[in-house]
Design a protein around this nucleic acid. Structure first.
Lengths: 106, 106
DNA sequence: CTTTCTATATCATTCGGTGATATATTATAT
DNA sequence: ATATAATATATCACCGAATGATATAGAAAG
């Protein structure tokens, strides 16, 4: 499940999943890192390398977009409509995996 | 989330997850491919390249083990106790991700 | 007897994640 | 004042995971 651009395949990696989830409210990169750590209670942490490379990819795929920010030095982003759509589809995909696992354990 | 051997990090990739799930009942490689396709209703299919390379890795990590089979040419495997433990932990990890997502959407 | 299905296996390639590193700005402490 | 820590963004090089392609061989079917 990691050949062929996972975004074009309509699947989100964990990193993209959490960045999209965090950007349901607009914020800049550094805040995303802190937000993901907080909302997963420290279970998931995204470092700067993963963050900024993934942001670039998500912008290119038009799943997030830069929004004009008041402070000049911070780059602020927000999830797009197609980003929301894909995020919701991916939540369903992940729920189905759980349901499949539960079904196997009768 | 893909540097450093994910098994040692205690996380299962989707491929490893479904193979372990299928091997809660012993079966040989080819049957695993068909079983995963069936239990996910075609949503997930693991090809031979992914299957046999992952089996090798899971055996090395002692999460599955070969079991003596009656038929000589088929190699049969079964999940181990530590495999069951890790699989259960990963189900919980995946459930937590879903719950985090649901919490964000109040 | 040839085609299809079963069954296992490896190679080379590509994509995603990340440690390390760099740079600049802005607080905060001494 | 000034060193130190935290904020903020960015890229490079490397590694692991997944996989299309390909190869091999036995068994079943037509």
């Amino acid at each position: 499940m990691a050949r062929k651009d996972s975004l074009k395949a309509g699947e989100l990696t964990d990193t993209s999943f959490f960045i999209l989830l965090s950007l349901t409210e607009s914020k800049h990169g550094y805040l995303i890192m802190q937000d993901v750590e907080k909302m997963t209670e420290g279970a998931v942490s995204i470092g700067p390398a993963s963050l900024y490379t993934t942001i670039k990819k998500l912008v290119a795929a038009e799943l997030i977009e830069p929004v004009p920010s008041i402070e000049g030095n911070k780059k602020t982003y927000l999830i797009t409509e197609s980003g929301k759509k894909l995020l919701n589809e991916d939540i369903i995909r992940r729920e189905q995996i759980i349901r499949t696992a539960e079904r196997v354990f009768e």
